[in-house]
Write a protein that binds this DNA or RNA. Structure first.
Lengths: 191, 191, 191, 191
DNA sequence: GATGAATGAGAATTCATTCAT
DNA sequence: TATGAATGAATTCTCATTCAT
């Protein structure tokens, strides 16, 4: 480890390292020690900036979520370039399970952490709520958005766990049932 | 701890204790020591019967799955008493999130443990595949079964994490889209 | 923590906080960090004003002693209003173990900290010597004063540790043996 | 550290080492690490036998007490060889502060620990009660025994802390006031 | 077979202190 | 002068696993 007495971005570098640790070793592998090694920083430095394991965990998972939500938002932002929302989402699943599989696994690991540890539950919940919020303007109502997110989550988890290849035509079939796209514009939110 | 020399059900009791440990402390809390304490058995006894941590983990999660699958299977077995399959599944979600919430949380913890640890991935996959297999005879085809399981999983996880109350009419609405029950009998599997 | 730049009483406030920390968490709980939190002051500020742990410890214990000695002195100052010195001291024990129990425990913690840590030994010794000095004018000679302080200390410690209730008539009985009050005035110090 | 796979007296040796650590470094210096080093045993071995710091502390202090109480008991057992009980106790103080000063300091450190930490309070209380019990048959009543123990404790603490030399004639003077030895045998307990 | 004991690794955490600003 | 940041050393504790009996 290079000694570095004055290092203004220390906290930032630690956090980035924490994310990399989660991505490479899973949520359980996130320890102060692992992060210190990954960030090339003394152990005490990690505990200085994140004084408890929970603090480190929550910060890392928040950042992971942010990245995922940004991707999702960016993707939805160009939904109008696709033939249909269904098609656009099918493609999202495809990418999530293909080139982005690693980060997809990490995000679903956040859900897991949320089930086991009360401290991260808000983080996991925020991720879900935010996905719904991003999807909302493109569909008929909030219930639809929630259902679509549920189906996407359930499908993705199933495919991640069973290792079966993604069959876009299946995804299209079921998403289509939830999103009967009539050609009319989605109803804007009333609130 | 009571000494108990000739104890033919030792292995069985350890396993039952392991399940209780997972249910009460989560997957991360499953350690030889915790199980030994819960089973009122010496530490060495747990390592004798399950010589690695993974062995213990997998055995416990398999058993958890079995319990869950049995519930699911039993529930489906009386599906014909319900007004419709949709209605029957809505009710299942209701129960899962209500009286059975604790064991529901445990089962989803198995899923996500599967994401983090390769050794449990087959266990988690088996659970999903088995749910599909149980549902298959009641729906049009295997794809439908998979989609229904996905939606149920996604919905349940969403409700567990956000803490929102279950709204049966919403669940009914979306399940109904996947299961357009026409009154005709489901197509039997062709295989 | 409220930023507070020009704060002339900073040192004073840190010291007062240190005393509160000793009273609430014991001598072992006295750390720079705990004091910083209690005083609502940055950590660096505590190390600036008290550059070593020993300095902080000694300063806090000195102040604790001062408070105790002031109480003891004030009490003795009105000894002539009591029927006898014995009676007055019995009452002091009563109060020490009753309403003032918390601060009594702290002061005896100072004594014993003196046994463990050479740096505080002078502080503890000063407390004892000062009690003797305060008592001296009211009794026959310095030896008597020392014996009375010894008995009071021994009794108090015994009652604190065993949790037995204070029996004033017992205290009166034994103090009376050391202080055979004949009605004659105490011999003034010869020195 | 010599590896020693099978070591039947391991626990015993750890405990003995713990006592030596308390005697040499004080109660605060008693850590698993220090004990491991002193006992020439791996760290894990100390945590195996005494799984918490409190367990180690209590065990060590109990043993320290036992040694002290044995000395005190042995000393009292030959009280009839002395000119008087007072004289015998004066001599005990003399020895405690002289050749046995180190172990005397340790025992009073147990008192200290009792004030600060609830877990050792019973140990400290037991020491006091046991001293009273040992002394009881030699004096008029239990109150006398308690008073004598109080005075001895108070005196000893005072001398340990102030560093003043023991003045046997003073001790004799005050002990004599509590123990007006009339030559008659002490009243045996009525219980 | 069964198990108490042993062990080494690694976890979180706390801390006094130093240093750069 | 004051202080946030940094750091290295300790501490407790938990654990999976191995081993001798």
């Amino acid at each position: 480890m290079t000694p570095r007495r004055h290092d203004p971005d220390r906290r930032e570098r630690i956090l980035a390292a924490a994310v990399r640790v989660v991505e490479s070793r899973g949520v359980d592998g996130l320890t102060h020690r692992a992060v210190a090694a990954e960030a090339d920083v003394p152990l005490g430095s990690t505990t200085y900036h994140f004084d408890s394991g929970d603090a480190l965990l929550v910060a890392a998972l928040e950042r992971l979520n942010d990245g995922w939500l940004r991707s999702f938002g960016d993707w939805l932002a160009v939904a109008d370039e696709a033939p249909s929302l269904t098609e656009h989402l099918v493609r999202f699943v495809d990418i999530s399970l293909g080139p982005h599989r690693a980060s997809t696994e990490s995000v679903y690991a956040v859900y897991f952490a949320g089930l086991n540890r009360p401290v991260v539950r808000p983080t996991a919940a925020r991720c879900l709520d935010e996905m719904v919020r991003l999807l909302r303007p493109l569909v008929a109502d909030e219930g639809t958005a929630r259902a679509v997110v549920s189906l996407l989550d359930g499908l993705t988890i199933q495919l991640l766990l069973t290792g079966r290849p993604h069959r876009p035509e299946e995804t299209r079939r079921w998403l289509g049932r939830l999103l009967p796209e009539t050609g009319s514009r989605p109803t804007p939110p009333t609130g």
